[in-house]
Structures are given as structure tokens and as C-alpha cells.
């Protein structure tokens, strides 16, 4: 099992009231799954994804990732864990504006202390696989939305994560661009066994996945 959430609660206090963002979430994810999270706006999809990605904390419950109990880990260990195993893809791409495509791809490798020659090879490989060799010296602002998201996915993948978390990865793209990204996810999932959890509003995109989780008001339905 890749990860397991047990009775996860998350809340904020506002005006003396406890507002629940996540309520009693139980979830088990096996390696190689492709999960789509759906639900109306404000239902807690992003919050759930951030909790899974360890970017955000929760208030109650247990979370085990690769048999490590995340809820007992210190901040630093937790970030080491997600750095090692998780890649993020964002709706608004979140590329570093001041870096070229190539440099954006290289950045995670630098943080993970790969050697120079290795980095070069891995970056070249990614550029190749995503068919963006010609764009390697351009800055994000010089790319279309779809191209930016391609780079975003490439960056999430470059350090060989076990899990990719994608929050509305196609939210800013047109249907043809969405299609491409979804095909890419499917291929990664099928051919390389990468586990994927994506948030989406589109039934069509959700259908690429092997399982759908529906949220309503922070609760799994």
C-alpha cells in the first residue's frame, strides 16, 4: 500500500466556531492507482490533496505513507519524505518565471543533489520525452498554457516520484490541451506505474482514472 488515511479531520476556528474542512476521511491508495477526486467548489478537494502531499497539516487522524506514520513525523522529515516520493502539478503551472524551461526542470534535481552529468542527462531525457527540446531556452512567459503545463508535469516527474498529485492540472487549458495532458497521465500510469491522484471538475477527465472519489462539504460520499 502506498498510503492510507484514517479518520482524518481538519478544521479552522472562525468566530468561536469550528469549521470543518475535512471530515472523517478514510482512504487507501495502492501503488499504480490513478484516482480522480471530484466534488463541487469548496468541497475540500484541494485541501485533501495538500494533506496527502504533506504541504498542509491535519488536526486529527492517522496518515501512513509507505508505512511511515506521517502524523508523528517532524516537519523536516515530512518534507524529506514528500521531496523524495511526490511530484506536484498545479492548475496555474507555478513555474519559476525567472528560469528557462531547462532550468526549471533542473531545479528539483539540484535540490535532490544529483550530480551535474546525471542532471544533464535527466533533463535532456525529459525534454525529449515531452517533445519540448526546441523550447528549452525559453522562459515560461514565452510558452502557451498547455506548453507550460507540459513543463510542469515534466518537472513533477523528473526525479522519478512514486506519486503525482495534480490539482486541476487542466483547469486553465482548452479541451485539446487537456486531452494531451490526460493522455500523458494515462501513459505514465500504465507504462511506468506512477501513482496519480488528480482533482478535476470534468467527468471526461475523471474517466481516465481507475477510481473516483467524491467529496461534499469535506466528507467523502
Amino acid at each position: 500500500m502506498l498510503l492510507q488515511l484514517k479518520n482524518i479531520f481538519k478544521w479552522v476556528n472562525s468566530g468561536g466556531q469550528r469549521i470543518f474542512l475535512l471530515k472523517d476521511i478514510n482512504l487507501e491508495v495502492e501503488e499504480g492507482e490513478f484516482i480522480s477526486v471530484m466534488g463541487p467548489s469548496g468541497s475540500g478537494k484541494s485541501t485533501l490533496l495538500n494533506v496527502i502531499g504533506m504541504l498542509d497539516t491535519f488536526d486529527e487522524g492517522e496518515y501512513n505513507f509507505l508505512d511511515e506514520s506521517v502524523h508523528t513525523l517532524k516537519e523536516k522529515h515530512r518534507s524529506n519524505l514528500y521531496k523524495e516520493y511526490i511530484g506536484f502539478v498545479f492548475q496555474s503551472y507555478h513555474l519559476l518565471d525567472d528560469l528557462t524551461v531547462q532550468e526549471n526542470l533542473e531545479m528539483p534535481l539540484l535540490y535532490k543533489k544529483f550530480k551535474g552529468s546525471e542532471r544533464k542527462a535527466m533533463v535532456a531525457d525529459m525534454l525529449d520525452r515531452f517533445n519540448i527540446v526546441g523550447k528549452k531556452d525559453l522562459f515560461p512567459a514565452q510558452l502557451s498554457g498547455g506548453q507550460q503545463q507540459l513543463v510542469g508535469v515534466a518537472r513533477a516527474l523528473i526525479a522519478n516520484p512514486k506519486l503525482i498529485l495534480a490539482d486541476e492540472p487542466t483547469g486553465n487549458l482548452n479541451s485539446q490541451q487537456s486531452e494531451e495532458i490526460m493522455q500523458l497521465f494515462k501513459k505514465l500510469n500504465k507504462e511506468e506505474g506512477v501513482t496519480i491522484i488528480q482533482v478535476t471538475h470534468s467527468e471526461k477527465n475523471a474517466a481516465y482514472g481507475s477510481r473516483i472519489i467524491n467529496l461534499l462539504d469535506g466528507r467523502k460520499v
Partner: peptide
């Protein structure tokens, strides 16, 4: 801030 967020999400530590 955005840059900090991205960098952290792709693996940067605070010290870095």
C-alpha cells in the same frame, strides 16, 4: 512568495 512556494514544493529546504 510564489517562488518560495514552488521551490518548497519541488524540494527546497528552508535553509536552502
Amino acid at each position: 512568495a510564489k517562488e518560495v512556494g514552488i521551490r518548497k514544493s519541488i524540494g527546497s529546504q528552508k535553509g536552502q
